[in-house]
Write a protein that binds this DNA or RNA. Structure first.
Length: 502
RNA sequence: GGGCUCGUAGCUCAGCCAGGCAGAGCAACGGGCUUUUAACCCGUUGGCCGCGGGUUCAAAUCCCGUCGAGCCCGCCA
């Protein structure tokens, strides 16, 4: 049925409810005293056909309506779950008016807990009230909503229809709390640093640009909070963290969304190995508490979060998985080898990182720290033995975290920024991302920043693993999508409804 | 940015290869039914076939373009 016609039935019923003095939209509250799941659990021991005098008041969305003449069965869904409602002609008030309520409506009911002859714990409804009228039909009761685009665009419908979608966000909430508690218990201070920044930094990415009218200046949405968090270390905070929404003006794919949340934290006076110890311990404990085990099924593979995690030097990993001894290759030999694989990069470090992606990345399943990064692609990290004292955490072939011993030498930091700028100037490569000079950051370091280690964690990817989802969009409530064509709403289709609420 | 796939009723899908009246189930509407749970039975309604061109006597179907989505690749957790 075409939408305007279909919707007509819904607004007709709203009209009738209004004429009966039962306009649902005028109601402000309904006093619930039970939840669906609570009732089902508590009364699961009733005999089939047994009827109690226990009075309950529940509210939620009607998900189905099965009419049998003198008795109507309906499923009510609330936050906790589902429960069946039974309306009886000889018992329920205003039985005839029940024709005005339907699938999709939000109702409140009061009635007795019973178990039907078929053994279903139910509420035998005495009185009922419509608390909100659906003006659009719900998706198919059996197949539900499956269209991926509609699920993301109209996530509210996805959440109504697909319990699994909703549960993911409950789990995510739990994990966020566990992380926050863990950090707080370890004396970390949660902070908020600027999202609008005059100079972007802390990562390699194209930023979103915007403009501040009053200040009359260009601003960037941050690509990372890193440089501000380290300014706090300068200021005397020793352990700081931020759940940081970040924005990167890049393509969208299963592992990238233009806006995403990073957890970054910085810890003064510890070195990278201690940071890795801490991460292992934190994740092992959080995963255990969140899902009840340190082993997780993810897309057909089992991931074991129990510590200790494997630690491999990046070049050793390339040697082990690819059989290529990068450390003993000259620049020319290395670049030539990479080109044979279709990898074209200018910096030695970029080549090595690409070789790592090519040979190793996908083969990592269990959490693994990859250490000893090329220094030239790590402008914010300290060096050690010719490498950056840096690590990335890989799980299930995904880069989940990136951390290092923070470079606190202002002179070296200045040089690194300058090298980045020069690289950008001379590079032929279009869209090459380098880090812009941030003189305020250098100035901060000039006051002295304690030695420290810090890490940025892509929370979305972690959530993917915990929720067993193959794409980030499943763990982002409202993923970024191109704008859709004109949307028609009820007043567009039936302008007369505008007069109902003047 | 490049490649592949998809877009048909509110929802889930068939029809497209090989051009010939626009289809099904669910939902909705009318009727029946006092224990169903994808309730059932009888009847009815419902379409910009994403959008725009082209080919053809004839296009949902073939061709070109475009918009949207998904996957793969190149680049940013």
């Amino acid at each position: 049925m075409t939408l305007p016609r279909l919707v007509k039935d819904y607004i007709d019923r709203l009209k009738e409810l209004r004429e009966l003095g039962k306009d649902p939209f005028k109601i402000k509250r309904f006093e619930k005293n039970a939840s669906a799941e609570e009732i089902r659990e508590k009364f699961s021991n009733l005999e089939a056909g047994e009827e109690t005098e226990v009075r309950v008041k529940i509210a939620g969305r009607l998900m189905s309506k099965r009419k049998h003449g003198g008795v109507i069965f309906s499923d009510l869904k609330d936050y906790s779950g589902r429960i069946q409602l039974v309306f009886r002609k000889d018992y329920t008030d205003e039985f005839k008016e029940l024709k005005l309520i339907e699938r999709g409506d939000i109702v409140g009911v009061e009635g007795n807990v019973i178990k039907t002859k078929r053994g279903e714990v139910s509420v035998l409804v005495k009185s009922w009230v419509v608390l909100s009228k659906a003006l659009r039909p719900l998706p198919d009761k059996w197949h539900g909503l499956e269209d991926v685009e509609t699920r993301y665009r109209q996530r509210y419908v996805d959440f109504i229809m697909n319990d699994d979608s909703r549960k993911n966000f409950i789990l995510i909430n739990k994990v966020l709390h566990l992380i926050r508690n863990h950090l707080n218990e370890n004396e970390f201070v949660e902070v908020y640093t600027p999202i609008l920044q005059p100079v972007y930094g802390g990562a390699f990415a194209r930023p979103f640009e915007t403009y501040h009218n009053f200040l009359e200046q260009k601003m960037y949405l941050r690509i990372a909070p890193e440089l501000y968090l380290k300014r706090l270390l300068v200021g005397g905070f020793e352990r700081v963290y931020e759940f940081a929404p970040c924005f990167r003006n890049e393509d969208v794919d299963p592992l990238h969304n233009p806006e995403f949340i990073q957890l970054e934290f910085y810890w003064a006076y510890i070195e990278l190995n201690e940071l890795m110890d801490f991460l292992e311990e934190m994740f092992e404990s959080i995963v255990e508490k969140a899902v009840g085990s340190t082993k997780i099924e993810y897309q057909g593979r089992t991931i074991d979060f129990s510590k200790p995690w494997k630690r491999m030097r990046m070049t050793d990993a390339i040697k082990e998985y690819g059989g290529v001894d990068v450390d003993n290759m000259g620049d020319e030999e290395l670049i030539q080898h990479a080109e044979e694989l279709g990898i074209k990069e200018e910096r030695r470090g970029d080549v090595i990182e690409k070789l790592f992606d090519y040979y190793v990345k996908d083969k990592i399943v269990n959490p693994t720290f990859i250490t000893h990064f090329p220094a030239d692609i790590s402008p914010l990290a300290k060096k050690a033995d010719g490498y950056a004292d840096r690590m990335e955490l890989y799980i299930a072939g995904m880069e989940v975290a990136n951390g290092f011993s923070e470079l606190n030498n202002p002179i070296e930091q200045y040089k690194r920024f300058r090298e980045e700028e020069e690289l950008r100037k001379k590079s032929e490569k279009k869209g090459l991302e380098t880090m812009p000079m941030d003189k305020d950051y250098v100035r901060a370091l000039e006051y002295g920043m304690p030695p420290a280690s810090g890490v940025g964690i892509g929370l979305g990817r972690l959530f993917m693993i915990l929720c067993n989802k193959a794409t980030l969009r499943e763990v982002i409530a409202f993923p970024t999508l191109a704008k859709e064509d004109e949307i028609e709403v009820i007043p567009d289709l039936y302008p007369e409804v505008l007069e109902w609420y003047e």
